[in-house]
Simulated assay, not measured.
Amino acid sequence: MSDPRLLSPQEIAAIREEIAGAVLGGPEGLAASLENDPEGFLRLVAAARVGAEESSRLLREAIQGARAAGHSWDSVGGVLGVSRQAAQQRFAVKAPAAEPGSAIGAQDQVDGAPPRRTITPVTAFNEMAELEEAGRDGWHLVDYGPLFLVVEASDRTWEHRRAFGGQRRRMKAEGWTQVGTWSFPWRYYKRPTDQV
Rank of each mutant, 00 (worst) to 15 (best):
V50D: 10
F41T: 06
P192M: 09
A31M: 08
P27G: 01
I15F: 12
F184S: 15
G180D: 12
P4Q: 00
W176C: 13
V122E: 00
G21H: 01
G77W: 05
A13V: 08
P121H: 04
R136Y: 04
Q85F: 01
P192H: 05
H160F: 10
L44G: 06
R16E: 13
P114A: 13
E127Q: 12
F91T: 09
G165T: 05
E35L: 10
G51M: 10
R191F: 12
R161W: 13
D3N: 15
F91G: 10
W158A: 08
F184V: 11
N126H: 06
L131H: 09
V122N: 00
A134G: 01
S102L: 05
D111F: 06
A20L: 10
P38L: 08
L147P: 00
W158S: 06
G112T: 00
G40D: 04
W182C: 02
A87M: 08
Y188Q: 12
W176L: 13
V142S: 05
S33P: 02
Q167I: 07
Q167M: 12
R43N: 04
A97Q: 13
A46M: 07
D37M: 04
D137R: 13
Q88H: 05
K172M: 12
F148R: 11
G180M: 11
A62W: 05
H160T: 08
I15Y: 10
V150D: 08
A46G: 04
L6T: 11
H140G: 11
D137P: 03
E159Y: 07
W158D: 07
E174N: 15
R49S: 11
Y144S: 09
A14Y: 02
V179F: 08
V76W: 00
G77P: 10
R67S: 12
S83W: 03
M1T: 02
A47I: 03
V150Q: 09
R191T: 12
G165C: 02
W182Y: 14
D108K: 10
A113R: 06
P115M: 00
I19L: 14
Q167C: 06
Q10H: 03
Q195F: 04
T177W: 04
G165F: 08
D143C: 02
G105R: 05
V82N: 01
S102Q: 14
W158T: 06
G77V: 07
G40W: 01
M171V: 12
W176R: 14
F164K: 12
V142L: 07
G138F: 09
A87H: 08
T193A: 14
H71L: 15
